[in-house]
Structure formats: C-alpha cells, structure tokens
Design a protein around this nucleic acid. Structure first.
Lengths: 182, 182
DNA sequence: TTGAAAAGTTAGGATTAACTAACTATATTT
DNA sequence: AAATATAGTTAGTTAATCCTAACTTTTCAA
C-alpha cells in the first residue's frame, strides 16, 4: 500500500511520502508541538516500533529534506517538513472528528481509524468531508443537530453498538496513544 | 500496513488477511459474480498487477483455504473464502455509497477511496457508518434529505469542488475499474 | 569524574508484495 | 494436427518496513 496524496517538492520535482513515513513525520510534528524536542525513543513509543526502525526512518526523512537530523542530535522539522506534517495532521483531525463527533464512536476507535485512513483518502474526500462536517454542525439549522439526532436514532432503533455519544467529549486534544502496532 | 479486520478460521485459529490478499479475494468474488470463472489475467487486470503476482497470491489464498486453486485450473472460492469476500465487498459498498451518495463525490474518486479504505476501517466504523446512512436516508424525515441539503449547502456556500451531486446516479452496480495501481 | 543506565545507531535478517524474463500449458486457427 | 497466440507459472530480483542483537554515544548520579 504505497500511494499517498500529500506531496512535497524536492528540486522542482513533486514527491510523495509512504504511509509509514507520513506516520513518522506526523509523530514528530505532534511531539514537537508539545515537548519542544522529538526524541527517537518517544517517536518509537508513539508509533509502536523499535528505536532501530526510527533511526532508519529519520535518515530517510532527512534525506528527503523534511527534517533536520544528525546522529545523536535533536530532530526538528524543515519548513517543507512542517508544511507537509501540518497537512497530514489536518487530515487526521478531520477524520477523527467525523468518527468521534458525527458517528459518535469511542475515542480509541476513532483515533485508530483516523491514523489508518489519513494516509489513504485523497484531498477530494478530505475536503468534502470537511465541508460536510461544517454543514452538519452549522448553527443556523433551526434547532436541528444531526449528531444528536443520529444519537437518538441509534438509541431508539436499538442498534447494538457502544458509542460515546452520551459523553460530552466533543473532539480536540488528541494524542497518538492509539497508533496501531504492526 | 498489515492489520486487517475481517477474520477467518483455519483449524480453530482466527486469522487475518493482508490488505493485498483481501483485494485479490474481492476481485475473484466480483469476477465470479459476473462471468462464472475468474481467470488469472482478469484478476491481474482488475488489480493492476502482473499475472505473476496473481499466481503468487492465488497460491497464498489456496494455502489459507480460501480458494480452490490448481495450476492452470479455474479459481473458485471455498465457503470460507466466499464468506470473507462477501464481507469485504459489503465494506466496499458501504464506503462507496457514503462517498458517492452522501458526500456527492464523483464515481471514480468514490470507487478508489472505497478500495483503499475498505481494508483499514474496522467493523465498528463500518457498522456505524451503515447505520448513519440509514439515518440520513430514512424516509420519515418530514421532507428532509441530508444529501440534497448538503448539495445545496455546497452550491450556495460556493465551495470549490466538483461533485456529481446533481447527476442522479445514486450508487449500486460498481465494478473495480478504479482499483488503484501501486 | 567516572561508570552505569538510557538513548541512539549499526548490521544483518525476515516478511510482504511487487516486478521482469523466461518457460510451460492450453486454446485457437488454419 | 501443427503452428501460433494466449494464459499461466517459475525463478530470481527489488524495495519498503520491520525486527533483534550488539555496539556506541550521551546523560546523570554517586
């Protein structure tokens, strides 16, 4: 499974990142937005891989000009890398929000699914989904609330699943604890 | 990217199929529901791989007890294989319908995204999405139609994308022409 | 300040899944 | 029925990831 959608330019050529490398980049991005430095060990823990695997990925990302990396040194994102990582993170956020806020699925499941799907759904889907969520959560809809109605629909219909629609935790503030191990 | 959700039993043990093998199984399933026989060449064309790759996958699926396969013979699904393939196809159909009928994305994009996502989204997501679509398309909603409203919302909001919401092709009858090449 | 623990790297190997090229089997056509 | 075209297979290669085990560098505490 190789094709990915977000692209970056290297010496005038458009390149794409594998799902795996996108994961690494996103993990670095998330770590940096919290703790200032991204350590190999933390990246490994986040993604559920060994430290050795991280080293390989870092070399790869550095070679592609997306991170600043020197053995035994701190990892930071280049401007390119930051731009790309932001877009990946946005995809993640949109998907997570859809799974969690619209479908009302529990946090862990939403998080994991977002991690997986974020590498596979192209900009058309992500953009349209974004607009769909704006549509569904728009305030000017005379008291209607699709998410709430759907929750009621699920309850009344006696559908057999275990969402978190009743809890008021409406998204935001995710971490990558649920990144899937392979 | 390895973890997959649909499982099958072999000698009492629960097994999972890789995304790639699910693709092969689904392709066989679709071919069989049309033309009675599934030829190596057709599978290769459907999935955009070489015939040699198909042979390898067939051996693999046969060894897992999901297809009947003898070199130079016809390929058929075992009961197990058919069960599994149906579930994969259902996931595909649900996702495609969501992308196409709810989000109003064009056929090719919906098809391709469904192909990709069907291997990555677990039963919780697929089930909930199924219910969500029932919810959104239920008839008892006093003249409301979420898909149509969303279409209007997109048009009025001047959102810049190119859906097929105006065309009346509401799902069904898909093929795998848009399976992504890797 | 020195030595152990923690973090990071290297080397080597496994797995999955693709490819090309060459070969074999089956089908078709004359 | 023989020649040829089509389909299918085999063997060998490549590439992306991951792993384990052993080694090196850095950090920190006595």
């Amino acid at each position: 499974m190789y094709l990915i959608f977000e692209t970056y330019m290297t010496s005038g050529k458009i390149e794409k990142l594998s799902a795996s490398l996108e994961d690494y980049l996103e993990a670095i991005f998330n770590l940096l937005s919290g703790k200032t430095v991204a350590r190999s060990k933390d990246i490994a823990e986040t993604l559920g891989v060994t430290r050795a695997s991280v080293t390989g990925a870092l070399r790869n990302l550095a070679q592609k000009g997306l991170i600043h990396y020197k053995p035994y040194g701190y990892v930071t994102l280049t401007e390119q890398g930051n731009r790309l990582a932001s877009r990946v993170a946005r995809r993640h956020a949109v998907l997570h929000s859809f799974f969690s806020d619209i479908l009302g699925l529990e946090e862990g499941i939403s998080q994991e699914a977002a991690c997986r799907a974020e590498h596979l759904l192209g900009p058309e889907i992500i953009n349209r989904l974004t607009v769909f969520m704006e549509f569904v959560t728009r305030p000017d809809t005379e008291g209607k609330d699709v998410a709430a109605e759907f929750e009621a629909f699920c309850r009344d219909g006696g559908q057999d699943f275990q969402g978190n629609h009743t809890s008021g935790t409406a998204g935001k503030g995710y971490n990558d604890e649920h990144k899937i191990k392979r």
